[in-house]
């Protein structure tokens, strides 16, 4: 990583407060950090420390209560102004791909159809061939016409990764991508993410409880009580 690498994601004093009755929970409490293009950042920390909440803010899945967020120099959140679903969607589909602990494949669609599904709603030019290419790259070419129930958990997460990448996002957001997998499968998914980061320059923002996985990235951030600490 060179100092010239452009900052793609910059958070300043990002804060998210949840209200539960009269109680206020500062799930993310004034986090400032910058993520450069091609970085692989891992967030670790105890349960309830605000990892998911922070990553969701970075991924424009949620509006912050306060603070600012810039995407490639463009102001997304700031000045207390909230973006509506349509505006958020427009930002998300341009920049992000997401994977989650539960893979959320559509059970009625085949592997191939699941990966192609995002293109039914939004399609960047020239991505038509990506479905086959990604599935082949992830070693799923022999499972293209299987339904999700017919493949293993590790394979499901590969399909979810292919689906997240089909529109060529700049940043992949992964919230505990191996949380539902055994050590071996988790390692495989880790290797895939690392390869993607190294070979294609994909920026990855990941949350993981697994120290081995978290150390794959060049950068480790620890969350504690809503605050971020670089390690």
């Amino acid at each position: 990583m060179t100092t010239e690498s452009k900052v793609v994601l910059e958070a300043r004093d990002l804060t998210r407060v949840y209200r539960r009755g009269s109680e206020e929970i500062r799930a993310v409490d004034g986090v400032s950090l910058a993520i450069r293009r091609g970085e692989f950042v891992s967030f670790m920390g105890p349960s309830g420390s605000g990892k998911t909440t922070l990553v969701n803010l970075l991924g424009c899945l949620d509006n912050p209560s306060a603070g600012e967020l810039d995407l490639a120099g463009r102001g997304i959140f700031g000045g207390g102004k909230k973006l509506d679903e349509r505006a958020l969607t427009r930002v998300r589909r341009e920049v992000f791909g997401y994977i989650f602990q539960n893979f959320y494949l559509i059970p009625t669609l085949t592997v191939r159809e699941n990966v192609a599904l995002p293109l039914a709603f939004y399609r960047k030019p020239g991505v038509e061939a990506e479905v086959e290419r990604l599935l082949a790259m992830l070693g799923m070419e022999h499972r293209m016409d299987h339904l999700p129930v017919q493949i293993s958990g590790g394979e499901m997460q590969r399909v979810a990764i292919a689906r997240a990448l089909v529109n060529r996002p700049e940043i992949l957001l992964a919230d505990e991508p191996t949380g539902n997998l055994d050590t071996k499968r988790a390692g495989e998914i880790g290797d895939i993410l690392q390869d993607l980061n190294r070979n294609t320059g994909l920026t990855i923002v990941m949350v993981s409880h697994n120290p081995d996985l978290a150390r794959l990235g060049g950068r480790l951030v620890e969350m504690r009580d809503g605050k971020a600490h670089e390690i």
């Binding site: 899945l61 969607t89 998300r92 997401y98 539960n102 709603f121 939004y122």
Partner: peptide, 16 residues
């Protein structure tokens, strides 16, 4: 609900 949420992370608009 979760599936529909996922469709939204894929870029589906409320209208979609």
């Amino acid at each position: 609900m979760p599936e529909i949420g996922i469709l939204k992370t894929m870029g589906a608009m409320p209208g979609d």
